[in-house]
Amino acid sequence: MAFNRMESATYLASLVARSLARALQERGQKLGFAPGQFPILLELWSEDGLTQKQLLDRLDIEQATMANTLARMERDGLILRRRHPSDRRSQQIFLTERAREMEAAAKEAAAAAEQSLFSGFRRFEKELMLEYMRMALANTARDGEAS
């Protein structure tokens, strides 16, 4: 039986992810952030001063990738690191004024990228797709815990 990639969820999901990342990159580049930084920014906009360990626990990112992304964000003036007041081994990560000021525009850029993905969808179709995506992610998380 021939493999039909257009019937493969893994293949289609990777195409959708790349397409969204590309759309966010085009918009985010103008603001000064990369798509891989966006989840970290979202967490810090929600709760500034998290440690790297807290970010790792909240986001599904490899330790090395997180370290490299934070280094780039620090270099680009998006974050500052400060020694944790009660745990000398860890550092807290804080947004710079520049990163705080870009929050609304960055979220608008992400919404525009998402809107391009859902162009032509009826509201219930978008809601169904999002629900199916959440269900699939829950399944993969459960499978990951089992292995």
Rank of each mutant, 00 (worst) to 15 (best):
S14R: 08
P35E: 00
R83L: 05
R5A: 09
M66G: 03
L137H: 08
E101F: 12
R122H: 13
L41Y: 07
A106Q: 04
F33P: 02
G28K: 01
E74V: 01
S116N: 09
A138P: 04
R89F: 03
M129K: 04
Y132A: 10
T96D: 03
D76F: 05
R81N: 06
R83K: 07
A17R: 00
A141H: 10
L42V: 05
R88Y: 08
T10C: 10
L44N: 02
A112S: 09
S14L: 12
E101D: 14
L50G: 07
R142Q: 11
L56Q: 15
M129A: 11
L130R: 07
Q37S: 01
E114V: 01
I93H: 03
A2R: 15
W45K: 07
F121R: 01
A2H: 09
L24F: 07
P35F: 09
D76M: 02
L117I: 15
R122V: 11
E47R: 12
L41R: 03
L15K: 11
F94G: 13
N4T: 06
V16M: 07
A113I: 01
N139Y: 09
P35V: 10
A2E: 13
Q37R: 05
V16S: 13
L20V: 09
A110H: 03
L56E: 15
E97H: 12
Q91H: 15
M6E: 12
L95S: 01
L42M: 11
V16P: 07
N4L: 04
L70C: 02
A104V: 14
G32Q: 05
A141V: 01
Q115K: 11
M135N: 10
E108H: 12
L128D: 00
M135A: 14
E101H: 08
G49N: 03
R82N: 11
D60E: 15
L95D: 03
L70N: 07
T140S: 13
